[in-house]
Design a protein around this nucleic acid. Sequence first.
DNA 1: TGTTGACCTTCCACTTGCTGGAAGGTTTAA
DNA 2: TTAAACCTTCCAGCAAGTGGAAGGTCAACA
Lengths: 141, 141
Amino acid sequence: MNIGEAAKKSGLSAKSIRYYEGMGLVLPSFRKDNGYREYDGDKLQELVFLRHARQFGFSLEECKRLLGLLRDPNRRSQEVHELVANRLADIDQRIADLLAMKRVLDEMSGQCPNNEESKCSIIDTLAGKAPRQTLSGGSHE
Amino acid sequence: MNIGEAAKKSGLSAKSIRYYEGMGLVLPSFRKDNGYREYDGDKLQELVFLRHARQFGFSLEECKRLLGLLRDPNRRSQEVHELVANRLADIDQRIADLLAMKRVLDEMSGQCPNNEESKCSIIDTLAGKAPRQTLSGGSHE
DNA sequence: TGTTGACCTTCCACTTGCTGGAAGGTTTAA
DNA sequence: TTAAACCTTCCAGCAAGTGGAAGGTCAACA
């Protein structure tokens, strides 16, 4: 199949597929005489795999490693597990950061008069004029 | 004060301060004869404000609007409140996305044998071979 | 046969928010 | 005087693509 069909079936854009190819992730099965890329079932499966991995937030570098493991019949599941564990640690960190932001922004939001007046505790807090609301919780800055 | 001192006191890097200037966010008070940037207390406060706003995840465009509001004595706190509300909605969305990823990755991680064998349900799931674990929860894809 | 439209190709530019480095000018202290 | 530590501008690059230009190809239809 051509790149357009591979795109439709994999859920990726043709642009992305070309980009991933340039990054060395998934090459087409071969090129036809007219230069068109040709993808077979195996390659399509790799593209789907890639889309899933990206949806879980793996970087292209990590996707490259995952594809290597997908292709390697002698892989150790340990290695796959480790990549997922790293990803999970990263996600946990991001969630914690976002929750810390949310907590303080919620607090700030609730204290803003939200009217036609200029007085605004959000502005004061960001400017460092109001009682400190830090992301880290401590009073050190 | 020079950019180096402004950087130290604001917690930003000199590179970032120059970048923000290029983006039209915070200009130095003036340039000295030798071309060096000079920052006074007000400008330093704006830089600190900027650092805080960035720490809360506001984009530079949003920071630009926030700085405009900081400087505007006739601002309406409504406007500030709205920016924060938008930011909060974005944060909530991100958290929800990350939690959905985490949920599925946790599940996958627990099912992987995590040993020397090649059999790995994580790989199978990403390849779409195993019982579907989707981020959206539905069976539609 | 012509031509229209939908494909496909490559390449370059743009995005966000910086960071690093090169090449060079200034200031300060020993 | 000279070295270190500033400062200046500009250029390149990161992730992970998207958009568009310029052009080749293919299938269908009159």
